[in-house]
Design a protein around this nucleic acid. Structure first.
Lengths: 197, 197
DNA sequence: TAAGATATTGAACAATATGTTGATTAATAA
DNA sequence: TTATTAATCAACATATTGTTCAATATCTTA
């Protein structure tokens, strides 16, 4: 009976490929990296690579999607109590903390979010942040289009994360989350004068 | 006597190469683009390309630097009166308007800032924005590190620009500048509680 | 545990891009 | 006009890519 479960050899090969890829991307970057490099480092036949991936772009995309999935999973399993604590004041946004911890512990994420990283992946991360930012209310002046507001916030947050990474993660995720929260409270997202479009 | 002025043939070749490159990058993207493609489109010998550029990465970088220089030039020639008008209220930040107009009229810029664009170029643009954002004062709560503040602002602005481009430049540069200004006024950058580091 | 299924290997292949060279031709500058 | 130098053309070695084949190794499951 055909099983969804993959053959152990496949799992092994993919794991070796991914590990080699992650090691190499931090050494050579993505562009100059070849399939030969990867399979040589992984110590497998080059043909095996093409058995599982179309090319290096396909491999990168699969890894990116796995990381996005993992981040979504992390966010979903946040304890409701944590969110309550946050709303009760002074606790950093638990969503941001989880994301920061994950990013900081994942070298591929760090590379892709960096200045030599991957634009389209950065977009995916921004998208993820957009759907998870908590908006607060306020009554205010001009009606800012909600989509521009979200673009503003998510980019700002990603920018702070990049700056944090560039500086070598000197601060704890919690401290960064506090900074983001602080800026949010005085920022436009604390507004309620939104304009739906 | 050796003149700094370049031979007209060199100027012509470089111009043909750049034009071909800009046309092609919007069709095929940067990665799949080859030197052959470029010289074929430019209708010059492939060897001529290597006479002026190391490879396609070198070409891209030179174009990027030229655009950054041009933006700096645009910003520098802003009339002092315009800035005064801005401070007098209700005029959008002239700096932002100039930048947006330039971006909107330059297809290479639009590509590089887009989701399939070039991370490191986006960093350069952020850097440019950092050095030109006008900070306003306020007295407030927590001391936010100035570098994080700048990272926050410049990324937010770039994110708004990207969103504007993604939407097909429906709004005029002036309107986007107004949105940015509005968000700034209620944002963290209207603060003065900075912490130098 | 044995048998059948299937993933991996190694070698070879054509096709393509790269970066360089040398001789020739054409355009430019003074 | 003439000396300089850029552009061209052809050719080259080198490297990567993506594919195929038969042989081998490993896994699944009955």
């Amino acid at each position: 009976m055909a099983n969804e479960q993959e053959d152990r050899r496949i799992i092994r090969s993919k794991k070796l490929i991914k590990s080699a890829f992650i090691e190499l991307i931090n050494e050579k970057g993505f562009e100059s990296l070849t399939v030969r490099d990867i399979t040589k480092k992984a110590d497998i036949n080059r043909g095996t690579f093409y058995l599982h991936y179309e090319d290096k772009y396909d491999l990168l995309e699969q890894l990116e999607n796995e990381m996005i999935d993992e981040m979504n999973r992390l966010v979903k399993e946040i304890n409701p109590k944590e969110i309550a604590d946050f709303r009760m004041q002074d606790e950093p946004l638990p969503f941001i903390v989880k994301i920061l911890e994950y990013i900081g512990s994942n070298s591929l994420m760090k590379f892709l979010l960096g200045s030599k990283g991957h634009s389209s992946f950065q977009m995916k991360v921004k998208e993820l942040m957009k759907t998870n930012v908590l908006l607060k209310r306020r009554e205010e002046k001009m009606a800012i289009p909600i989509d521009y507001l979200m673009a503003y916030i998510s980019s700002a947050h990603l920018g702070v994360i990049q700056h944090w990474l560039d500086g070598g993660q000197k601060e704890a995720p919690k401290d960064i989350a506090k900074i983001l929260l602080e800026m949010s409270l005085f920022g436009p997202f604390s507004s309620a004068g939104f304009k739906e479009r």
